[in-house]
């Protein structure tokens, strides 16, 4: 039931936020350096458990800007905030503040992850 409600909310918001999303992308929420560090720490230490350290997916889907570009930033923030009940995406509202969640949504949409290269060892 909660899942339906969240889906409904996302759908209702979509027309309003698609246009705003572009603006929001350009103006990420202002956060203290400590808060930014906390967001990146959460991304690295917690989100990475399911979505991979370089956001290429695992148990959860990939979170690269390429895959996420169809989502308005507010929709992403809503999913992060409330989770996706039934799909094991937990709500993060008890871990991050609203501003931090907005910053994270923006970060996922705009910053490309760069996996480390592998040392090539002759013929494969």
């Amino acid at each position: 039931m909660r899942q339906v409600l969240i889906l409904f909310l996302v759908c209702c918001l979509a027309p309003f936020v698609i246009a705003k999303g572009v603006i929001a992308n350009k103006q990420p929420p202002r956060l203290s350096e400590a808060s930014k560090a906390r967001v990146l720490m959460t991304l690295r230490e917690d989100c990475a458990n399911c979505h991979g350290l370089y956001r290429l997916g695992g148990l959860g889907p990939a979170l690269t800007p390429e895959r996420l570009k169809v989502y308005p930033v507010e929709a992403l923030a809503l999913i992060i905030e409330h989770g996706r009940p039934g799909n094991f995406m937990p709500p993060w509202k008890d871990v991050l503040s609203k501003e931090e969640i907005d910053y994270l949504a923006n970060y996922l949409l705009t910053v490309e992850p760069t996996p480390p290269e592998i040392q090539m060892r002759g013929e494969k």
């Binding site: 991979g52 350290l53 370089y54 996996p115 480390p116 592998i118």
Partner: peptide, 30 residues
């Protein structure tokens, strides 16, 4: 170093315990 993407990496040892095989998120085995 330079083993690639070790997110969630795990591994096993050879039976002589001389080698370690990595299983990596990027599909590489070292």
């Amino acid at each position: 170093e330079k083993l690639g993407n070790l997110s969630h990496a795990t591994g096993v040892f050879s039976r002589d315990a001389l080698y370690f095989f990595t299983f990596q998120r990027d599909g590489w085995i070292n």
